[in-house]
Structures are given as C-alpha cells and as structure tokens.
Write a protein that binds this DNA or RNA. Structure first.
Length: 693
DNA sequence: AGCACGCCGACT
DNA sequence: GTCGGCGTGCTC
C-alpha cells in the first residue's frame, strides 16, 4: 500500500432518494458542511460533506471540486438531521429540497455593487443591477464575457438598502417587547397589527445584514407580503414557491444563497433552502393546513420552521388569529412564548353572527335561505359588498341519467365527476384532474330528457343569486376561474375597486384579503366538514369560518355574518358566535385527550399503494405482521383508504400510535430496515398525518 | 432519481 | 435478422 493513504475518506450526502451517504476520497482539505462535486455513476453530483470519516469501499472515487463560497453550518446540518429523524424523510430526499437546482453552485459568486452606489464601477460597467440579475436577464456566458472585458472579477458583494420601522401603537409596542428569543406565538385577529409588529421586530436583524424568511401558506399570498415589506424596505425581496419558472428558480436560489436578497417570502419548501445567514423566520397563518405537505415527502412547514429556528438559534414567529390545536397546546405547555393582541386596529368591530337552521327553511331546490336572501338584497341596495362562501368548486358534483341510472365517473379514481361550466364546460375529477367533455345525451342510453345534476358548487350558487338579484354584479372565485396568481390578483383588485357586488367563493377567498366595503358574509354549507371520520374537521371548520367571517366589516362599517347549517346546536357555533376561540380550543383539546389523539399521542401513517388491489392488500398485511409487538405501540389497520383507487392506485393504510416520549420514529425505521417491497408497491410515511381517510 | 443492462414483440 | 419496450439493479 502506498504512503498517500492519509488522504481522508469522507462521507458525502447526495441528493439521492433512497440512502444518500457515500464515501469519497478528498485530496484537498474539506470541512463538514462543504458543498462538493463528486462523480456518481456516469454523471457528477453536488453533495454536502456529512462526516470526515467514512467506511472504505471498493472503487472509491475522488471529490472533483469544493464550492468555495458557501457551506452548510453545523446548525443547519443538525436541523436537517432532526427533520429526517422526525419526519422519516431520508436525508437524500431532504437534500433535494436544500439543493433544488444544484447547477447554481457552478456559478461564480463574485458580484458587484449596485451601479447607483458605486460610481467607479458605473464607468467601466454600463449595466445596472447585481451580477445575479444580469445572469438572470442575459445568461451566464454573456455576463462572464462582460466581466472579463471589464476586468472586474474580484469586486466584493455589497448590498445597499434602507429599512424603516413601521410606527407602532402603544399596544403594539408592548407586544413587541414580549417577543422571546426563540419561538413566539403572536395571536391576534385580522387587523390587530401582527404584521406591523413583525416588520418592526425584524428591523434590527435586517440592519445586522441577516436574512429574514417569511413563510406563507399559499403562493397567492406571496405578493401581498412583498407589498407590505416594500413600504419599509428598499432592498431586493426574494420569492420562493413551486410555480416559479426554471429560470426564476435559479435566480432566486442563487440570490438567497449569496445573500443578495435579505427578505425572502416563500411557501413551505423555502424552509429547507440554503441561506447565507438566516436571522429570523416568520410563519404567517400558522394554523393553515397548506403548510402540511402530504404528497411526496410529508412534512409540516411550520414545524420545520420551529426546528430550524431552534437549531440556528434564531427567533421564529408564528402568527395566527385562530391557532392550530397543536400550537395552542404548545403554548399551554410553555414551549412557545405567547403574545396576544386583543384590540382590532382602528376600532373596527367584530361581525355579529346569525345562525340559520336549514331544517326549518323551505328551500325547494334552492340553497339560500330567505333571511340570507333578504340580507343580500338590502346590502345590494346599500351598495355594500357581500360574500357567499361554499366549499365546493364547479357547478354540481354528480351527473346522473334518471332513465338508465348512468353516473359520470372518473377513470382513475373511485369518485363521480363534477360538472363545471367555468372557465369551460367540462366534467372534471377533483382528485386527479381527469377531464371529459360534458355529454349532450346519456352515453349509455342516449336519452337527453332525464339528466339531473346533483350537489351544489360555487357556480350554481352564482346562478341562484343571479336569479333573484338579476342586477347584481357577481364574481365567482375559485381555483378554476383564477388559476394563476396573476389572474387572482387582478380579480381581487377588481373586487376592491367595487366592480362586483356579490362574491361567491371557495376556500380561496378565506385567505387574508382585505375588502373595505365588504359587510356581509354568508356561509352556505356550514356543516360541510362536521363529520366524525376526521378528527381535525371541527378545528378546520372553525378556522375557515373564522377567516371567512373576518372578511366582513374590516372598514368603518360593522359587518354581519349568516351561517346556514343543519346542526345549529353544535357547540362549535356558539363558540364562534361569542368569538371565544380559547373556549373552542380548550374543548377540542379535552376531546382529543379523552380519545387519545394528537397532540396527546404521536400518530404516524404508513400507506402502501400500487396498481393491483390484491398485491397492495397482501403487502399491507405482511407489513403489519412485520411490525414487532411493543406494549407502547398501538398498530391500527391495515384499512383501505376511503377513495380507492385514487389516480389508478389502490391504497391501504396502517396507523401507529404511541405516547410522545417514546421514539416511535426509531421503532419504524428499524422495523422497515428489514422489510422490503417490490418496486411496484410504494410506501408513503406520514408523521402527524392530517387526513385519516 | 437516472442510467445502465437485459430479455421478448413489430418492423426495414 | 434489428429496434426498442420498460423491468430490476446499482451508483462511493
């Protein structure tokens, strides 16, 4: 053996789904956290040095290149490790989210001062903007050539910006003082000034040249935060979400990595990105279910934000008017600092809530009860806007021929197809997106007289309103009508400009938009989620109703809300009427405690899926039998999913329940270590699942 | 995940 | 006789 074997063998984490850690020889000195380019099969990949010792393996290869400008801090690596241990997402899969586009590591990292602030550069270099912006606009090759021509290769990174703090009221200042060093929950109804407190709080952090990450539950809310931030901040604002184009993604990831953007507004996946120096994390609308990613690697954005804040020793602020049960519990357990804002900004009143019993009303085939009709009419006369909420897209949810009994069903899922007229007439599956032209006659018996449409969606409500208020200008708001963020923003602007009298919308309208002239809210189906099949349904309904009702009366005029339901006596509504969130959450918590459900226990779901029903069932049973018996683990199932098949795949689920202080993740990891599945069968692990069906 | 290798149907 | 279907297996 040669004497040069003192070259280190290091363990490199690669963005590979299954395992992830591979041994490489390093000829130059590397540290843990360095980004390195390594040969892998017939290609080369970027990875992170995970450990400075690794097992000797045959065919050991050398590291090609070490990235000199950025490396993962030990705190960041600890964060990744905890994420992986908690969510059971393999480290390799996690790294794919950290390095969404690893090619940016090939870009040179030097950049220029903004032309406006560095006159000597202006003379030799006629292009304004930062390096990244030029690359974004003109392409790397051209910019590189320009740099060589201008001889400017080693100018240092420098960013100039101003940040002024918003002016706070006395109450807001008091709240600001209470924010702790780590996770703080800021609870306050819409309009209580949570945003301003946050924007004031981050000022010193921004001035220390650290980055701020603002997480939002939905892409459409990014732009809103950008506008808020721009009032006080003159620098670059980063955006991160799944709908960025490939070009934009590269530009944004590069700007975030190099620190050329100091404030980043992003959807949940932004929590895993590599930052230059993250200084604080803000999670807006903390309770929102959209933070939970259920498809692909399952994780909860808010929980990951808390983990990251903890490991990087930076503050994490959770904001909500209607805390999630988990957070409410964590506040009670004194895990989070709690800051409550009670006053609504500028004296706006909370809306009065009226219950309408669907059982007492004679509706015929209509969905809107008489009192709500009258209220809509009055509001129209007063020239004030109204909002009707119904949580169903499309026109109707079942196409049925009464002559032969034919019902239009999805080819891939065990569901009926919904009828949509907007933006185009079509039969649509809400689960897989399958589309079919709307039949003119029954495909089975060719009859056309006896076709019936069952179920009620936004479009049908729109039709009903138009029938009794023919002069009202109606706007239908659903993801089908506004399918791009731009379209949605345009529509929202039109609403603010009073171009519509009555809005009819799905979940989409519930999220953080301010319409000053909106004074009436009607909930069409106030019991759509009150099933006992799903333990979170009550919590979700409460949150969504709170949010929709919060749309009313945000200006100077007090608002009113009508809730149509067949369960007027349900305790949820009395808490809602008295605006007593605490009471509602307390009661929900005690139910969860009684039935041994989260947050009192840990719940994990294992879902097996595949094309062939029997094979999936077979492997689900054998997985269950493979799980060792432990007194502290309760194994439920396997049970078939409610919608089976879904996207042509059959799914069987196993649920595991254990007390929280046991490491059930370790139990599962070891159990799965000795369990193998054929490649046709997929296993999906979800820690703290949101759905049970 | 990619990208190989590998073993069976319709074409110049 | 080939071209190519995607089944399974490996990548330090």
């Amino acid at each position: 053996m040669s004497l040069q074997t003192h070259h280190l063998i290091v363990s490199v984490l690669l963005p590979i789904h299954r395992l992830g850690l591979f041994s490489y020889e390093s000829t130059e000195s590397v540290k843990i956290g360095n980004c390195v380019k390594v040969p892998f099969g017939s290609r080369s990949l970027w990875g992170i040095v995970w450990a400075l010792h690794a097992p000797q393996v045959p065919n050991l290869k050398k590291i090609i290149e070490v990235y000199p400008y950025w490396s993962a801090s030990s705190m960041f690596l600890l964060f990744l490790r905890q994420c992986s241990e908690y969510t059971l997402i393999p480290l390799g899969s996690l790294l794919r989210m950290v390095f969404p586009i690893s090619e940016i590591l090939e870009w040179p990292c030097q950049t220029f001062r903004c032309a406006s602030s560095f006159s000597s550069v202006i003379q030799t270099c006629p292009w304004p903007g930062t390096f990244a912006q030029w690359v974004f606009m003109f392409g790397l090759k051209r910019v590189k050539k320009w740099i060589q021509e201008a001889n400017l290769v080693s100018v240092e990174i420098h960013h100039d910006y101003n940040y002024t703090s918003p002016i706070l009221t006395k109450h807001q200042k008091e709240a600001l003082e209470k924010i702790g060093f780590q996770t703080t929950f800021i609870e306050g109804i819409t309009g209580s000034g949570k945003t301003e407190i946050c924007l004031a709080y981050i000022q010193p952090i921004i001035l220390e040249k650290k980055q701020i990450l603002i997480l939002v539950p939905e892409i459409s809310l990014c732009q809103q935060w950008v506008h808020r931030v721009q009032k006080y901040y003159s620098g670059n604002i980063g955006i991160w979400h799944s709908e960025l184009s490939a070009k934009e993604r590269k530009f944004q990831a590069w700007s975030i990595l190099t620190g050329s953007t100091s404030i980043i507004v992003g959807a949940r996946s932004a929590i895993f990105l590599g930052y230059k120096n993250l200084g604080a994390i803000i999670v807006d609308e903390e309770h929102d279910g959209s933070y939970k990613q259920a498809e692909g690697p399952a994780y909860h954005g808010r929980d990951m934000a808390v983990f990251r804040g903890y490991h990087e020793k930076i503050p994490c602020l959770l904001l909500s008017a209607t805390p999630s049960l988990e957070s409410f519990w964590n506040i009670e357990q004194k895990r989070y600092t709690h800051v409550a804002l009670s006053q609504r900004y500028g004296n706006a009143q909370l809306p009065d809530i009226y219950m309408l019993d669907l059982k007492e009303q004679k509706l015929d085939s209509n969905m809107i009860t008489l009192p709500l009709r009258e209220a809509l009419q009055k509001n129209l006369i007063k020239q004030e806007q109204s909002l009707l909420f119904i949580n169903k897209r499309g026109y109707a949810s079942l196409w049925v021929c009464y002559h032969c009994g034919f019902r239009a069903a999805c080819q891939n899922c065990n569901v009926w197809l919904s009828i949509h007229y907007l933006p185009k007439s079509v039969l649509l599956c809400h689960y897989c997106g399958f589309k079919k032209p709307l039949p003119k006659t029954c495909p089975e018996c060719h009859n056309l007289e006896q076709v019936k449409l069952w179920g009620v969606g936004v479009e049908k409500i729109g039709q009903e309103v138009q029938s009794f208020l023919p002069n009202a200008k109606i706007c239908i708001l659903s993801s089908d009508v506004c399918y791009t963020p731009r379209q949605l923003n345009e529509t929202l602007l039109a609403i603010k400009n009073q171009e519509y009298d009555i809005l009819i919308g799905t979940q989409l309208v519930a999220k953080g938009h301010h319409f000053p002239n909106l004074t009436l809210v009607g909930i069409i189906d106030g019991d759509f989620a009150l099933s006992h099949l799903d333990l979170r349904s009550g919590e979700r309904l409460y949150q969504v109703l709170c949010q929709v009702i919060g749309r009313a009366g945000r200006g100077v005029i007090p608002g009113k809300a009508y809730i149509q339901t067949s369960q007027t006596k349900h305790p949820l509504f009395s808490y809602l009427q008295s605006h007593n969130i605490q009471g509602f959450l307390q009661e929900e918590l005690s139910t969860r405690k009684k039935y041994h459900f989260p947050p009192y226990v840990r719940l994990i779901s294992l879902t097996l899926s595949g094309i062939d029903e029997n094979t999936v069932h077979h492997y689900a049973l054998s997985l269950k039998n493979h799980l060792p018996h432990e007194s502290w683990v309760e194994v439920l199932g396997p049970a078939p999913s409610l919608i089976n098949p879904l996207r042509r795949r059959w799914r069987w689920r196993i649920f595991l329940k254990s007390p929280k202080h046991y490491k059930i993740q370790d139990y599962i990891r070891t159990a799965l270590h000795t369990f193998s599945l054929p490649s046709k069968i997929r296993l999906h692990i979800d820690v703290d699942p949101y759905d049970f069906l």
